[in-house]
Write a protein that binds this DNA or RNA. Sequence first.
DNA 1: CGACGCATTGAAGAGAATCAACCGGTGTGG
DNA 2: CCACACCGGTTGATTCTCTTCAATGCGTCG
Lengths: 243, 243
Amino acid sequence: MDGNGLVARMSRLSPLAASEAKAIAGLEGRQRSWRRGAYLQRENDRADELFILRDGWAIAATLLNDGSRQIVQVHLPGELMGSANLLATRVPQSLCAVTEVTAAVIDRGALARLMKDHPRLAAYFLALAELDRLAMADRIASLGRGSGRARIAAFLIDLMIRLRRLDPVVENSFAMRLTQEQIGDATGLTAVHVNRMMRALVDDGLVTRDGAVVVVKDEPQLMRLAHFVDRGSIDTSWIPAPV
Amino acid sequence: MDGNGLVARMSRLSPLAASEAKAIAGLEGRQRSWRRGAYLQRENDRADELFILRDGWAIAATLLNDGSRQIVQVHLPGELMGSANLLATRVPQSLCAVTEVTAAVIDRGALARLMKDHPRLAAYFLALAELDRLAMADRIASLGRGSGRARIAAFLIDLMIRLRRLDPVVENSFAMRLTQEQIGDATGLTAVHVNRMMRALVDDGLVTRDGAVVVVKDEPQLMRLAHFVDRGSIDTSWIPAPV
DNA sequence: CGACGCATTGAAGAGAATCAACCGGTGTGG
DNA sequence: CCACACCGGTTGATTCTCTTCAATGCGTCG
């Protein structure tokens, strides 16, 4: 019931019936912690668990057969992780703790029962999935057409906006919890080049850095460089009302 | 009821009740055709329609603010297009006919009514969305970490496998309906480089070409180059059974 | 026929990867 | 308590991939 559980997240999309909220909250019971660098799940594991990130940052990543790694997404607290495990029988992407992490573990079967008991809730999961697809499409555009600088800019902007949504205290700065190597794996660049592009952003006066803290000095300009588009408001009126 | 409507696609995921099948089929009534190059919808249009591609190829693409274009996905017959329009109020990606195209037009409101009347169906749309997310994650990996050759290889393999699923007559060859410019917009390369990478694949004996027809000569090798991973079987047992 | 769209090829230039070295902080074991 | 290892960030030099610019050819269609 704190602000970043699944119940809260879903309520924000559309009101939940009390029974539904209770059923969802029931899912989130089992909780575990992982230390920095630990894997919540590995590629090709049996896909029998999903997670809700409670605290810390985590990444979803695939290893390519040449040894390189691509980070598919960076998860922040409150997010559902491993939702592909609903459909897949084998885990498609590893989940790895970037910081110390706490997450609720959801049994795949329990989630299936939830949807059997409350079919309407599938619409909520659909909404979450569609939201994520929107974000993924933007990431595809950034990777496909952005220069190194643009990719880093997009990456920083994305993180900042999401952190801001999570906690309005975040104004124009945040603590970067990823190493430059990880940023490279997320943006399709090498760690060395990430370093240079970061520096370039600093030299251009778009951001400053103090240790791990990134301060965005010129947000509009950074957004322009990142080809950022505000996806605007979303509409969830199509989610059926509770009976 | 032909093999590539939404009813057929969803039945394949999990059996539909007769009433549900009928309701879905009702959605697909209105049908339209577009000629090659025409837009089914443009970015920033009001997001009030979705489409089911009946015939032809279509692409979903975003324009970046520097004028470049990124093709986010290539749609083949039978696929649901513009599903982001459920959630978004403005169209995030243009849909453009690559060939002459026929598609069923689904009113957003009608889809909302469908889910109100048959809440269980949201689970089907969720399954489709998750399937698509799996594919998008692989595309992100290809764009982020693949060389030019690897991206082209992945692009070709992906298309061939999807066409094969659509029509088992497809063995190891298919007609490429996209221009090299479009392939470039999909893979994040320039048209010129697409041309060279295609030639490189031919020179290596992995594929041959005859006009628009691409023949895959060494599928295992091409898959290896593409970092292809078979996502294996999918499990839809979590979709609630019909009442 | 001539314009146009698309594929192709060459040459030059920019952007990113690679290789290699160094630095500061942190943690650890002797 | 210090020496050392290790991790992550930084910088330079070089190499290579991909882009850019430009020109040519080929088929189609008005």
